[in-house]
């Protein structure tokens, strides 16, 4: 099954390597990974799409959660989410086919962003299924090149904000000093709700 994992991570160098290294080192597969800064410039958001049985996905989440640079990690697949992907596609086109292509583009509320004598470049945003559906219709015309950002997703629920910086306290340094700490509470995904975002037609 497809899972969408959303992680808040420290925005400093090496974090992407830690996350991707962990995923490949433990033999997990990822379909896509998208990273960008959040409203807090110290924090980045990673959206990781992976396919695997529940056990594997549980391991990925637990292992990611152990990384010190990962502030919070949640499987949002079962959540009410809005998910989008941006795709740029260069489609082979000639005067005879251009109109047909435009029609498909319009139906999907996509945009033509560049026109060439031999091709059209199309920009489309949407859920994965929308993008896939459109690309399938364009296939017969000849797809010359496709660039996808990978999925980004946001939950409709309360935001998964980064906890306050202050979550840990250390005041002693003797052996065996283990103080419990707050922060990084893992919110369970609200069960039962289907992912939405297929609202493009």
């Amino acid at each position: 099954m497809k899972h969408i994992i959303s992680a808040l991570v420290e925005n400093h160098s090496g974090v992407l390597a830690r996350v991707s290294g962990l995923i490949s080192g433990r033999g997990f597969n990822i379909d896509s990974l998208a990273v960008g800064e959040t409203q807090d410039p110290d924090v980045s958001r990673m959206t990781i799409v992976t396919t695997g049985d529940d056990r594997v996905v549980e391991q990925i989440i637990k292992q990611l959660g152990k990384l010190i640079d990962v502030i919070k990690v949640v499987d949002i697949s079962e959540d009410e989410i809005i998910d989008r992907e941006l795709v740029l596609a260069k489609i082979s086109a000639n005067p005879a086919t251009r109109n047909d292509i435009m029609q498909i583009v319009n139906t999907f509320r996509a945009k033509v962003v560049d026109v060439n004598p031999k091709s059209l470049t199309i920009e489309v945003t949407g859920s994965e299924s929308k993008v896939d559906a459109m690309l399938e219709l364009l296939l017969p015309f000849g797809i010359l090149e496709v660039v996808r950002t990978g999925l980004v997703a946001i939950s409709r629920r309360a935001e998964l904000a980064a906890p306050e910086k202050i979550t840990a306290k250390t005041t002693r340094f003797s052996a065996g000093d283990e103080k419990p700490k707050a922060g990084k509470e893992k919110k369970k995904a609200a069960a039962g709700k289907k992912a939405i975002g297929d609202d493009w037609y």
Binding site: V9, E10, G65, L67, I68, D69, V70, I71, K72, A162, P163, E164, K165, I166, T167, A168, K169, T170, T171, E178, K179, P180, K181, G183, K184
Partner: peptide, 9 residues
């Protein structure tokens, strides 16, 4: 005090 927000015990 040391604060490590991504570390939970």
């Amino acid at each position: 005090e040391v604060h490590i927000r991504g570390y939970e015990i």
